[in-house]
Nucleic acid binder design. Sequence first.
DNA 1: TATAAAACAACACGTTACGTGAGGTTCAAG
DNA 2: CTTGAACCTCACGTAACGTGTTGTTTTATA
Lengths: 247, 247
Amino acid sequence: MYTIGKLSKSTGVTVRTLDYYDEIGLIKPSSKTSGGHRLYSEDDVMRLERVLALKYMGFSLEQIRDILENSTANWQESIQHQLELVKREQERLKMLEQALLGVSYSIEFEGEINWPIIFSMIKLYQQDPGDALKPYEEYLNEDEMKRIMDMNAAQMSEEDIKEWLKVVGDIRNNLHLDPNSDKAEQLVISWADQADKMFGQDEELLVNMWEALQNLQEGIAFYPMNKDVIDFIKRVAIAKEGETHGS
Amino acid sequence: MYTIGKLSKSTGVTVRTLDYYDEIGLIKPSSKTSGGHRLYSEDDVMRLERVLALKYMGFSLEQIRDILENSTANWQESIQHQLELVKREQERLKMLEQALLGVSYSIEFEGEINWPIIFSMIKLYQQDPGDALKPYEEYLNEDEMKRIMDMNAAQMSEEDIKEWLKVVGDIRNNLHLDPNSDKAEQLVISWADQADKMFGQDEELLVNMWEALQNLQEGIAFYPMNKDVIDFIKRVAIAKEGETHGS
DNA sequence: TATAAAACAACACGTTACGTGAGGTTCAAG
DNA sequence: CTTGAACCTCACGTAACGTGTTGTTTTATA
């Protein structure tokens, strides 16, 4: 027979918790002293251990009571249900992590909070990615939008994202460069490589997104590119074309 | 200017929620009618959108208030902190999923709830795997225990687990077989293959766990094997050895 | 313009799983 | 028998609202 204090020490749960479990009828001590102090039997301890195990598995105290009362009836059902909840929560956390990373990148990159991009990102990771891509609907067909969504869902590696941010950032910091210079060409080549890695498998998608970007100035799909970057790339491309034709 | 009902409809948050945000000073309407009805300006709407975005990212309302007051001071810090929380929660859910799967398997397998195994499993996925492996400490050294923990942490694929359960289950259902029969030999070969896949890279570990199992009758490391299964395997092995020697 | 219907404000209690006291009672050691 | 530790019961607080209730304001209609 354990007093409540002994039981508390041996199991690590607080006295208040045992108090509460008694109060809600989850674990009632099987006997009491004449003075009213609670005495827990070995069976009670066993029940407590089971409660703690089920609690660890994420069940609410009410569910636990049901599970322990209804004996072994539909354990599997409860567990499968709980598993689904856990999986859904994992999905949610994955998206949350992506959104947080995205916001972190965007702040690091712009030095300030770009709320429209944050909203787009969150919408993209929420249930309604259609909303986030609405600005593009003039330029992309449904299939292409789906591909963009999948691409984001597939969780591009942190390396890829950082590489992309670096490439575009390099351009942003060098917009003044002479389009004919080697450095400018290098930057655009790096950019093209990376763009190819990310969108390369579909030439038409790339072209359409390019179209979209020229008119939208900025957007989530090509983030953090903006009009300035696009203009720079175009200038360099034209310069190079001229050079080729000239030679 | 939006009335509270209009704002509620256009953003999807309930009136009660807006009521609450007003109450705690998170979003106070910038004006009111003479009769006291709340009127929300465009700025208020913007603030609400930001609040919702931050809420989606997992911040508490108090944190949100701080973040929005302190302007862009330490956004990165908040976000990194939040990211860490998210990652920790993901870890927790991964373990929870493993524990639930383990319990599910064990019920499916035994047709009843094997509490000791459940406790072992939970301890293994909790902070104190040492406790769960304590029964083995006579037979395994610290290094080997660590390897077992790592193996579990590495999250054996569901396929592997199911295969293992099937193999051991097959044996459990055929304990009566003649050790000299082909069927018996087949079963043990399948078992040995699977055991090799799971523990194969370390011969000594396998031997020691085998030792442990012979004395412990059952345990989490080799679950769901028990004494009967071990005896069967030994019988078949001896029979085969005899056969080999006899030929 | 009067009136009914809809919207709104303000208040209050409920939710989960306890934490944190306060004030009085019982137990165990000396 | 005393005293200090352990214990019991009560009660309020937590986060972010949901769900009413009552009384008031606004809006639409006759």
